[in-house]
């Protein structure tokens, strides 16, 4: 599967609790490109990701484009955007296997060896609440593996992950970009994403 969607962000501003947390952000992404958002705590990296996902109200324009045509943002966010935030999006009271089974049903796909690829084959019967934060973050990546979508929005994807886990994330991102997918990542200064554009956001 090859993705052909692009993203244009123009003068985006996000206000939260009456305070502007992000202002004047503009950039574009073409198929296969990645953007790393950098900036200190509270600079608005997460707000940018959430605005792109439609999870935070924003001013300005976020346009999804394919072959020069504007696409319906509501449809695109429901079908072509993955957001993996600092929370896993998993049910803590369900086991790894139950969460995986839910995701496969939810996205209408058949599970293969994706859980094994994430290094969690030995934890299938454990409840997610009992996993380490790194293991939870690995399992949160399952949706990226089983449900291909054009745009990935990843908030601090390397946090809490060991070297193996970080390698898995980098491999997934590279494979996604090779298929024409786009990635927007909020990163700490200590992390780096090779071959990615960098946008430093500063709190207004």
């Amino acid at each position: 599967m090859a993705f052909e969607m692009g993203l244009e962000v123009s003068s985006v501003a996000v206000r939260r609790g009456g305070r502007t947390v992000l202002a004047g952000v503009s950039f574009g992404l073409l198929p296969g490109e990645a953007l790393q958002l950098r900036g200190g705590n509270g600079s608005g990296k997460t707000s940018m990701l959430r605005a792109a996902a439609g999870l935070a109200p924003y001013e300005g324009e976020i346009r999804f484009r394919r072959l020069g045509q504007d696409l319906d943002p509501g449809y695109i966010r429901a079908h072509e955007v993955h957001y993996v935030g600092t929370e896993s999006g998993l049910a803590p009271r369900l086991t790894v296997a139950e969460n995986a089974e839910f995701l496969s049903g939810f996205y209408g796909v058949t599970l293969g060896d994706e859980v094994e690829q994430l290094g969690l084959a030995g934890h299938l019967s454990r409840k997610v609440a009992t996993l380490s934060s790194g293991q939870r973050r690995r399992l949160a990546l399952l949706r990226l593996l089983i449900n291909p979508r054009a745009l990935w929005l990843l908030d601090e994807p390397f946090i809490a992950l060991d070297d193996d886990g970080q390698l898995i994330v980098r491999t997934l991102i590279d494979a996604h970009r090779d298929r024409g997918g786009m990635v927007m990542v909020a990163l700490h200064d200590t992390d780096d994403l090779p071959r990615a554009k960098t946008l430093t956001v500063v709190a207004p």
Partner: peptide, 12 residues
């Protein structure tokens, strides 16, 4: 709290 609701928003 788990972020599951965000995933439901981003679903068909």
């Amino acid at each position: 709290a788990s972020g599951a609701m965000e995933q439901f928003v981003l679903s068909p």
